[in-house]
């Protein structure tokens, strides 16, 4: 825009009256965005619910074919990353600039490990011909008539974990941006809103996984064996 006399800073954008108003607006904005995310994932959870109720036995068998150990490891990794994210926010509150950077880097590292493990799991599915939509699709222990229903399970598995992984990748990009800005010394005890708000997003992505892991890997696992 123009040569306006209003001086603008990161802490106080021109449209706000006080820094507190700006912080509240950013936080409310992120919570609302997370509401939209709940609705976004909700469509897939709805589809999962419908099909699991239609084909419970097939879903149990499919579920037990997933690698629950890797899934559990990933759950732990993600919970750890949420912990380091909280610590980054706390470092922001205390104005510890070095600590912000280190905790963000740790969070990014754990996020990276999660995605790596996820890639290994997907690779396993390819090797085992558990890819829906391919002529070679075959799940052991199921009759030919049920193979289609198993494809439904794996369609949902790939759609849901894929969408979750995409959110992780976006989260990793956000973390990178935060790390760069933190290195420039942008954040202080009086202004760390971006760290705070990104933290909310990161925890949300974590929580989605907390739902995905039992629904896809664990429920009725004992029946499938």
């Amino acid at each position: 825009m123009s040569n306006h006399a209003h001086s603008e800073s990161l802490e106080l954008r021109v449209q706000f009256d006080t820094a507190e108003q700006q912080r509240d607006a950013s936080t409310l904005g992120m919570w609302l965005f997370l509401v939209t995310e709940v609705m976004f994932f909700g469509g897939m959870f709805a589809a999962y619910t419908v099909y699991r109720n239609l084909y419970p036995e097939v879903f149990a068998i499919c579920s037990s074919s997933l690698n629950a150990v890797l899934g559990a490891v990933n759950t732990c990794v993600l919970l750890l990353s949420s912990f380091t994210m909280v610590m980054a926010v706390r470092a922001g509150q205390l104005g510890q600039q070095k600590a912000i950077i280190w905790f963000l880097i740790l969070t990014l590292l754990f996020g990276g490990i999660f995605l790596g493990v996820k890639a290994v799991e997907w690779k396993e599915k390819f090797d085992e011909h558990h890819i829906p939509g391919q002529a070679a699709f075959h799940l052991e222990g199921l009759q030919q008539a049920d193979q289609g229903h198993a494809q439904l399970f794996f369609s949902l598995y790939f759609a849901m974990t894929g969408l979750h992984a995409l959110h992780m990748v976006i989260g990793a990009g956000i973390l990178l941006g935060l790390i760069l800005h933190a290195k420039q010394g942008r954040y202080s005890a009086s202004y760390y809103t971006p760290v705070d708000v990104a933290g909310l997003y990161w925890h949300f992505v974590d929580v989605i996984w907390i739902f995905l892991f039992p629904l896809l890997y664990l429920i009725d696992r004992h029946l499938g064996k």
Partner: peptide, 19 residues
């Protein structure tokens, strides 16, 4: 967002033949 995810499902179904 529900329309968005519906389009995502439509998209993956048409492109990757998910079912």
């Amino acid at each position: 967002p529900v329309l968005a995810v519906t389009i995502v499902l439509l998209f993956v179904e048409r492109v990757f033949q998910l079912g």
